[in-house]
Design a protein around this nucleic acid. Structure first.
Lengths: 160, 160
DNA sequence: GGTGAAACTTCTAATAA
DNA sequence: TTATTAGAAGTTTCACC
């Protein structure tokens, strides 16, 4: 696949779809002063290039009662156990992301839980994995997200 | 708004839309053996209840050349500066999430950058904020994401 | 590259069960 | 709560710039 460069029109299309993937191509076309067919072709090109990999819903987990977020730093006996432990961690429900990291911790993960007691349960499951010597928990008191739109803007400004 | 409980059909609809928000309601209807109108009504109800808050694209940032992920722990002179520093951090491009946390760090954030030199630049911007005494960087060598679908399944199993 | 229009598919809301 | 229906709206293709 040839290296494919996004232009300003692609960027504007992305901008609208990032906010709402169901934005009608006809609406996008109207706003950008191009035809709906063109929007369709450009979106398809971005999909084919693997740049857009799909779409997903934004869900309100707090409304479902899962408002507890924590980060868990994991220490291992030996670094050679990293892959094994990563696999075990990824099997634990409510772990949302896991990273192998440099620095203080060997592995670092994020969990989303109902409350402290639910979180405790998840942390114990991590502690119980063979090779884990101990964990360190950082509870999130407040989360602020710089949304995708802003990141895309930064990237786009950076590229051009 | 009355407390609204998702049933198994809602769950299956979510499941398909989480994978692809543009899945045709007629396809969902066919698969679940209900009518497209019903799918429409249920999705609308979940939106009205605030449970579905929107939709967004999945983008491949690595393809754009932004494959460097790191977590930055931030130490402050005084905890009373937390809000001020959080606001400054949120103004820095390429910071994707920031948390006020208990434990070792006062603030904890995630950045996405092109490479180490780009990351260094971002970290220096954080270091430069008034009130920040020092930062600690953990570079992600490998990321593994437990996708939304799995989290939803865990939540759904947990609720019912 | 892009357009515009035709052909096709999907959405949506009202009605009825 | 669900099904049916039909008009409105959106998507996709294609011949032609």
């Amino acid at each position: 696949m040839a290296k494919f460069k996004l232009d300003d029109t692609d960027h504007k299309i992305l901008d609208m779809l990032i906010d709402n993937t169901r934005t009608a191509f006809t609406d996008i076309a109207k706003k950008l002063g191009i035809s709906a067919g063109t929007v369709h072709v450009r979106v398809k090109k971005m999909e084919d290039a693997g740049f857009i990999t799909g779409s997903s819903l934004k869900l309100d987990y707090e409304k479902l009662g899962y408002s507890f977020i924590a980060y868990i730093g994991v220490f291992l006996q030996k670094t050679s156990q990293t892959q094994f432990v990563m696999e075990r961690i990824n099997e634990i429900p409510f772990v949302t992301v896991a990273h192998v990291t440099t620095g203080k911790f060997n592995i670092f993960c994020k969990i989303r839980a109902k409350d402290t007691s639910h979180a405790k349960n998840i942390i114990y499951q991590i502690d119980d994995i063979e090779g884990v010597t101990r964990t360190e928990t950082m509870i999130s008191l407040e989360e602020s997200i710089n949304d995708k739109k802003r990141l895309m803007h930064s990237i786009f400004k950076d590229i051009n």
